[in-house]
Amino acid sequence: MTGTARETLLEIDDLTVRLASGAARPVLDGVALRVARGESVGLVGESGSGKSVTSRAALGLLPAGATATGTVRVAGDDVLTMSAARLRELRRREVAMVFQDPRASINPVRRIGDFVTEGLRAGGTPARAARATAEELLEAVGITDPRRALRRFPHEFSGGMLQRVMIAGALAGGPRLLLADEPTTALDVTTQAEVIAILTRLQAERGTGLLFVTHDLDLAAAVCDRIYVMYAGRIVEEQTAEGLFARPRHPYTAGLLAATPRMGSGEPPRGVPGRPVSLAENPEGCAFAARCRLAAPECAAERPALRLVDGVSVACHRAEEPIHD
């Protein structure tokens, strides 16, 4: 929709990723996804849905030993087939990632300055210029006295502050595409708001494309323009954030919304019965059929493909029917 007007940064098409062995179904099964310049796109799913694997694929990172088919194009180049040198260049300059746990993702024995500038330095930026850029970035993410912060070590920062540092480090190479994998899940709620505020402001200022991976539909809706919902390695629904809340088309999306506790409502959260499909199972039909209130015989027999229903992409045989709660 919006992607046609703006330059598309990330185009994933028919991406299927299989693990080396032991799994009955692929981790990703025919995933297609677009992120345009300046756009915030949400990728929502529960554990094991494949959302993290999808976002990592945009960096050319696949689970070791896994095989992938399909294409992952960043600014037109296929990440899956490009040379190692080009891939390094891509990670340095074009695509950056903010991980969930800053404490686990930042080398604890190196200074903050090293972390923020290492990409720049590897790309040939002189030390003095790299340091100046790092100071600006730390200031931009709201770290007071950035010059001193550069000489400090990770353990001297709180989780929220360290996540700001990670965002600064991710933005150092001036990427056009930012991948954020559950960037605030490890943080307190009030800290989450601060980090999100910084992330969205910088993303808007720089016109960076953002792929925001989260398990939290409400957070995705607050951050993103458009949301993909994943279940068992497949995209099951894609539409605007408002549309998703107003009228979810896939019963899984509706189930997730009903399961999310709401502060203002007296209505208690309602669980989705059953449990997610493990990698050891490969149901023939729709992966959600076993947990679905609307499931019909055809749902267990034939896997629904993504199709457009009233302008919404949804993979459900019964998408035309209203979902009754």
Binding site: G22, V27, G65
Partner: peptide, 12 residues
């Protein structure tokens, strides 16, 4: 992710 990791270790 752990499963993937173990898979790789076994292979190695």
């Amino acid at each position: 992710m752990t499963a993937v990791h173990l898979e790789r270790r076994a292979l190695l």
